[in-house]
């Protein structure tokens, strides 16, 4: 398969799979803690961070841009927390306004940069919709360098992470430092986002966090299996999406991956044993027939 022999394709495919796996894994916690849209808000909020990083460093260096993205996303998360905790504004309105305002500010910075005489700033637009085709080997190493420690932390503190995701009050009563772990869990979403932004872009990032986890949940009742399955779905969807995008003209990788992943989710929702809607329907018919 061309995908793995050709150097460029290999980078793109491997990069996409890496992102799919990491977002799937880390996104599971966001979904379970009902912070699915936090990823959406934070990925939109990353835009001004990226623009500012470019403004400051003057170059499209992946590390500094990712750091810019991460800082902006974290600021947005802290801001969200402050708003929801101290005012009567509920989380949905806080998310929507944070998303729009930060992103709007990012657009302001982008438009300012566009008037600057730098050729490299054209790449910043790729953060909007992702540009998987532009992934180079250095980007892959950056992803691993950021992604693996996040994964490792989750695995090391697995019991605490699981407990806090399920019952933070009980965890607090045991004396577990819940606040610190909540920061960790928000931090890992930031990690997933900064890694994934390059492939699928701002608008579609939330799908990479949510869809694999929702799909995986339908097939298993154990958290341990769910996160692995989510990683698997994410990687597989990325592989297939990357492959399809090589088949023709005008097939952007990011949207293709999201579509494939959404298809997996639809199939899971319908066909998974026990939870699947089709089985539910059949069971119901059986009961009615029995009466």
């Amino acid at each position: 398969m061309e995908l793995f022999t050709d150097y460029t394709f290999r980078n793109v495919t491997l990069g996409a799979m890496l992102i799919g796996a990491i977002s799937g894994f880390l996104g599971s916690f966001a979904v379970l803690r009902r912070q699915a849209l936090l990823g959406d808000a934070m990925s939109h909020a990353a835009l001004p961070g990226i623009a500012l990083a470019f403004l400051i460093t003057g170059q499209r260096d992946p590390f500094s841009l990712l750091i810019g993205a991460a800082v902006a996303a974290l600021v947005a998360a802290l801001w969200l927390l402050a708003v929801v905790r101290t005012t009567r504004i509920k989380d949905d309105a806080a998310l929507a306004l944070t998303l729009a305002v930060f992103f709007g500010f990012g657009l302001v910075l982008l438009s300012y940069l566009q008037r600057q005489p730098h050729a490299a700033q054209a790449g910043l637009k790729s953060f909007l919709f992702g540009q998987a085709a532009a992934l180079i080997e250095r980007d892959l190493w950056a992803m691993l360098a950021i992604g693996l420690p996040a994964l490792a932390l989750v695995l090391i503190f697995w019991p605490q992470v699981k407990l806090i995701s399920f019952d933070p009050d009980f965890a607090r009563s045991l004396g577990v430092p819940v606040r610190r772990f909540e920061v960790l869990l928000t931090g890992i979403i930031v990690v997933a986002i900064v890694i994934g932004l390059q492939t699928v872009g701002v608008v579609l990032m939330s799908a990479m966090l949510i869809a694999p986890a929702v799909a995986a949940r339908q097939w298993t009742n154990r958290l341990e299996y769910m996160v692995v399955l989510a990683a698997g779905f994410g990687a597989l969807a990325s592989l297939i999406g990357a492959w399809i995008s090589t088949l023709g003209e005008g097939l952007a990788t990011g949207p293709l991956i999201v579509l494939v992943m959404s298809l997996f989710t639809m199939i899971s929702l319908l066909l998974a044993p026990e939870r699947g809607l089709i089985w539910r329907h059949i069971r119901r018919q059986r009961v009615i027939a029995f009466d």
């Binding site: 379970l32 995701s165 399920f166 009742n221 958290l223 769910m226």
Partner: peptide
């Protein structure tokens, strides 16, 4: 009511 009983755990 303090937890989500759909959480994947036994």
């Amino acid at each position: 009511s303090s937890v989500d009983w759909d959480f994947p755990t036994t």
